[in-house]
Design a protein around this nucleic acid. Structure first.
Lengths: 352, 352
DNA sequence: CTGAAAGCGCTTACAG
DNA sequence: CTGAAAGCGCTTACAG
């Protein structure tokens, strides 16, 4: 490799020990800030380490301590805004505490399949795992258990592990109530998902909430107005085209995500429909593009979810102390529901 | 940690050796497929390893071999489509060859600053580095050299390291020529960037190409029609609002990225301008939303760039053999220019 | 083709 | 407060 030229032998703990005139054990203790090292010794060790550009080999540290300082972040997709935002927030939070993220994108060829989590991804490679909207199979859960890895789930819950998410029912209730309060009665829903697709079941709670809210207001539910979609703008545009072309069309659409809502708005325009005069559209997320496109939505703070999950995991790893509030608290399963709120923009209005 | 209950002692190479009645050295060789192991022995070892669910501890392997099987992927941001798409493609390619990605998001509080790459992110942690649109400082480059790490740069080139990118000048030339060929003469550009922002200089080549193309066609360049923007849809909408409100407005806008083009389209609509009747807009990228929004653009294959860069790095690491074409080839610096092409959609047309 | 042994560079009881 | 030594679990010459 061409980079080899200027390569230099990095110094090891032995070099530091020799130079500082102490044992490697003492260097190890001094550098990690453990007790039982005299101030003078510590200072000397620190200085020498600095001079020699010494950084402990993580690989050796891991073998000896059993800790890698890395956490596995596992996602069913990566390219979508929601996941990328989570990963970014997690990475930053972990790095502040000297930890790193090993990334696993389990996306497979098709939307409804994904790769399994395997032993060689995790074993002696990570200290813990954060899942992003990823229901785990029994085999995967058993694996994580066997490896003794703490796990925190964002979005889709995983067994009895700590979970950070929004209230999916609440969020769709807010969206639907908003449309109803504007006077809409003919409302369609976009974002149903085939029930056999195990790893994308979040939608179900949203659909249920939509139905319930409609029912509570005595509004009729049209079966053909519950549309499934692959959760992208493109697919949502495609999936709603026919609906919007029909003379019997709804006056509003509640989409289970902003990306789908963006697709619906585009499809409406292509159809010559004005938003919101002819069609109101609401989404969920507050996607980066929601603002500029004037999309009314129910905002969720995605980065906060990533941050919170990372902090919970760090606490389980003993890297950071427990929250004051937690002391003496019951041992109930940790479950953090991040608040959401309606953001009204230009895509919704009273029916024409 | 509650996961500890079902935790089980994982088997080590010693267990396999004992069970198979051979030495650990033989197990090591057999499992890694090295020569000099009799077929019968190899088979027995393989079987025992399987039975014991044996997976070599990467941490021990790394310490002994000096290889970690992980590559560092370094980005100035992560949440944007371009970067997320690259990371996803890189991760998949590396995993096919038993390698993993350790992710570094160098984003800092402000758009024009970023965190530095440090020794403790890389040292004994990764076998190589892939940078995503990240100009490196001299200090960083010196660090990577000192650690002997091969590096492949996607987008912004890094010294004489292998580089994978699109032709930035070409891409903007195509966009500008497209507008000119439709009959536009009053064309604005969005996406200039202050020259002091070291880590986002890609834009400069695009701006230069825009100017040159205009000049070549004898078209006038309005200084106030060269707009800077922070490369997001929101900022572009904000930054062009005034321009579009003016009676002296251009008939077309060339944006240096689709995200900015999306912002421009939105700003135009807010202004009551029709796209493309009153204003043509073209971007660069073929962002996920370009299709549904009808945005004309110059497409680049981002995933391909990630894949190619990962392959080059794997080759440097000796994980995969050289390409046949490379054998006997000159030692010239590797530079892969990924092709781009114009995608005409509904956002561009002849001027009103 | 196979094994014994050194070595990778730390951490962690155990003594003192 | 400090050091000598074992141990983490592999790989890699070196012999045979």
């Amino acid at each position: 490799m061409s980079a080899g030229d200027r390569r230099r032998r990095m110094s090891t703990i032995t070099d530091v020990a020799r130079e500082a005139g102490v044992s490697v054990a003492t260097v190890s203790r001094a550098l990690r800030g453990l007790d039982r090292v005299s101030p003078r010794t510590r200072e000397r060790v620190l200085r020498v380490a600095e001079e020699l550009d010494y950084v402990a080999s993580p690989t050796a540290t891991s073998l000896a301590s059993g800790r890698t300082q890395v956490v596995g972040v596992v996602a069913p997709f990566l390219t979508r805004w929601f996941f990328a935002t989570l990963v970014s927030a997690i990475e930053k939070t972990l790095r502040q505490h000297g930890h790193h993220v090993l990334l696993f994108d389990l996306e497979d060829d098709t939307y409804d399949k994904r790769l399994p989590l395997s032993q060689n991804m995790l074993w002696k490679r990570v200290d813990g795992v954060i899942t992003l909207n990823l229901p785990m199979t029994d085999a995967e859960l058993e694996l994580v258990d066997r490896l003794g890895l703490p796990l925190v789930a964002i979005g889709t819950p995983v067994a009895d592990r700590p979970n950070v998410r929004i209230d999916d029912a609440e969020v769709m209730r807010i969206a639907t109530e908003h449309l109803i309060s504007l006077g809409h009665e003919r409302i369609a829903y976009v974002g149903a998902v085939p029930t056999n697709v195990a790893h994308i079941q979040t939608p179900q709670a949203r659909l249920d909430a939509f139905r319930e809210t409609m029912r509570n207001h005595g509004l009729e539910e049209h079966k053909q107005w519950i549309l499934s979609s692959a959760w992208t703008a493109d697919s949502a545009a495609e999936d709603t085209r026919e609906l919007l072309a029909s003379p019997e069309r709804p006056t509003a659409v509640a989409a289970a995500s902003d990306e789908m809502a963006i697709g619906v708005m585009a499809a409406a325009r292509d159809q010559g429909l004005r938003v919101p005069e002819d069609l109101s559209v609401i989404g969920i997320d507050d996607h980066v593009h929601a603002n500029v496109l004037g999309l009314t939505t129910v905002r969720q703070d995605v980065a906060a979810q990533g941050r919170i999950a990372a902090e919970i995991l760090l606490r389980q790893l003993g890297v950071v102390g427990p929250e004051p509030a937690e002391q003496g608290t019951s041992r109930a399963r940790t479950e953090v529901i991040v608040p959401t709120d309606l953001v009204t923009r230009r895509s919704t209005a009273a029916p024409g």
